[in-house]
Nucleic acid binder design. Structure first.
Length: 485
RNA sequence: GGCCCGUUGGUCAAGUGGUUAAGACUCCGCCCUCUCACGGCGGCAUCACGAGUUCGAAUCUCGUACGGGUCACCA
């Protein structure tokens, strides 16, 4: 049988990182079995409708590289894929259930229904008892016809068994057994004739021939009800894969208000989509080997359900950053330049040796958005304190630095062929001539060139990046500054 | 409160009765080094707790604690 999986988000305008991970796992399970990955949008909640929200879903999945085979925009043989367009389809299935004796019409008003007593959130007194079944369960056909004829509204409820247990197997959690008397007669069809989420889900998944259901483990406790439905219809029960959640910390789920919880937030912060996808895959799944770096194609082969975790995973920004940095390091210099040169040009605003700068920048870049502040000293020499020239380990201080700069200035000025090699030669020639530690010359020169204690690259690289004119000018400024004291 | 699920270092985690309890990120040392990175080496765990089964338990059983989920005419 062909494997078919589905990702069925509600369009909230927001692709949560946990949702992205669910989509990823769903995609991987389909693809590693040569199956189909279906996108179904559960947009029946008009109250929560957000403009453009469906596009966020499309865009996020596309950026992540998760190509769906069937969906609202693509069509397919099992449509419509927009749940709002399937609304008229569920009623007859509910009727079928009533005939079968697995569902019944309930005429109780919201507050009267035996099993819809309000849950007291503040205290612990009034929890409803599913065992107190609604009296409508026992209405005769005649009574039902009489009440419907009188124009009474009703909902259709699932008729749960009064005793026994339901057992099902989840691929991650194993066998789970639930006593039937803890299951309540959930509403299948609302009084307006529309299906509830749970009911629509079961029908849709069956009609779309979904074989593997991947979803968050908050559905673990309602799965027995789903299965009772499948059983009543005589349908095959799908394979269940319930995923543990992605958390912000030990006891809070990642939420929108954290500001970096969505895929798009992370991309805006400068993360590469591939790095996010890779890291996300590892939040709740462990590879068989020690390698942690995978392309999406590699994940299709490497991923396996038995490596999935039962416990929630805390999202770690530090590790994501480390992943992003590694992805950046693995780029070719050309790829790195394609992405960083526009940022550099914008930050620097003058002609510099971008190739040299990128070479020293690449191993130091965790996020492309960090680049601007790394190169800020290039645009303009900061007004630094001369104490910057003091470095115990480098054995430098302002006096020594002044001497160094005075000696190096004419040598650099005389250099006609300004390359990394010639600059390097000059600097190390001076070191030898003066008979000092490398740091004495190099620290002094680098400080004069950058005016800040931390820079990408050293003295020689900065000379090349800044060019002869600018380098000479900055050393002159250094001499002037040091001469003031 | 009922039911369900979970618990290996700061984080992700490997581990399925006998291991020096992998690996990655972070952190801390050291090496490399003109700074910072990169790279290299090393350090950081009485496996939530308590009983039990066993010659032997992170691994099996039970209990306790803590955390999460669910119990809507929301999805």
């Amino acid at each position: 049988m062909k494997v078919r999986t589905r990702f069925a988000p509600s369009p909230t305008g927001y692709m949560h990182i946990g949702n992205l991970r669910t989509a990823l796992y769903t995609y991987l399970i389909a693809k590693q079995n040569g199956g189909e990955f279906i996108l179904r949008i559960e947009d029946t909640d008009r109250a929560r409708y957000v403009d453009g929200a469906v596009d966020v879903i499309y865009r996020s999945l596309e950026l992540a590289g998760l190509k769906w085979d069937e969906g609202p925009d693509k069509g397919g043989d099992y449509g419509p894929y927009l749940q709002s367009e399937r609304m008229q389809l569920y009623g007859r299935y509910a009727l079928q259930l009533i005939e079968h004796g697995s569902a019944y019409r309930c005429f109780c008003a919201h507050s009267d229904a035996a099993d819809t007593q309000s849950v007291d959130l503040s205290g612990s007194e009034t929890f409803h008892n599913p065992a107190d079944k609604c009296p409508c369960r026992n209405l005769t056909d005649a009574q039902v016809s009489e009440r419907t004829a009188a124009g009474e509204t009703y909902v259709i409820r699932q008729k749960m068994p009064l005793d026994g247990t339901v057992v099902f197997t989840d691929e991650i959690y194993g066998e789970i057994e639930t006593p039937c008397d803890t299951l309540d007669d959930q509403v299948l069809i609302k009084s307006d004739g529309m299906p509830t989420y749970n009911f629509a889900n079961v029908i849709d998944d069956h009609l779309m021939e979904i074989t593997h259901i991947v979803r968050g483990n908050e559905y673990l406790s309602s799965t027995p009800k789903y299965n009772l439905l499948y059983k009543a219809f005589g349908w095959d029960i799908p394979v269940y894969i319930h995923c543990a959640h992605v958390m912000k910390d030990k006891n809070a789920k990642l939420s929108k208000r954290d500001g970096h919880a969505s895929f798009e937030d992370l991309l805006a912060l400068g993360f590469l989509p591939e790095a996010v996808v890779n890291y996300t895959a590892l939040l709740g799944w462990a590879p068989k080997t020690e390698n942690e770096f995978f392309t999406l194609e590699e994940l299709v082969n490497e991923f396996s359900i038995d490596g999935m975790s039962k416990s929630p995973a805390i999202f770690d920004m530090m590790k994501l950053k480390a992943f992003n940095a590694e992805y950046i390091r693995r780029m070719s210099l050309e790829q790195f330049m394609d992405k960083s040169v526009p940022i550099i040009k914008n930050a620097v605003g003058k002609e510099i040796d971008c190739a040299m700068l990128c070479k020293v920048l690449q191993p130091r870049t965790e996020l492309f958005t960090d680049i601007a502040q790394q190169v800020d000293f290039i645009a303009e020499l900061p007004d630094y304190d001369i104490e910057l020239y003091t470095h115990k380990k480098m054995k430098t201080n302002p006096e020594i630095a002044l001497d160094v700069l005075k000696r190096v200035l004419p040598l650099l000025q005389a250099n006609e062929n300004w390359t990394e090699e010639t600059v390097h030669e000059i600097l190390f020639g001076l070191i030898e001539e003066m008979g000092v530690k490398n740091g004495v010359v190099l620290w002094s020169v680098r400080t004069a060139l950058a005016g800040k204690p931390v820079t990408p690259g050293g003295a020689a690289e900065l000379c090349v990046i800044l060019g002869k004119e600018e380098s000479v000018e900055r050393i002159r400024k250094g001499i002037f500054k040091l001469s003031q004291f």
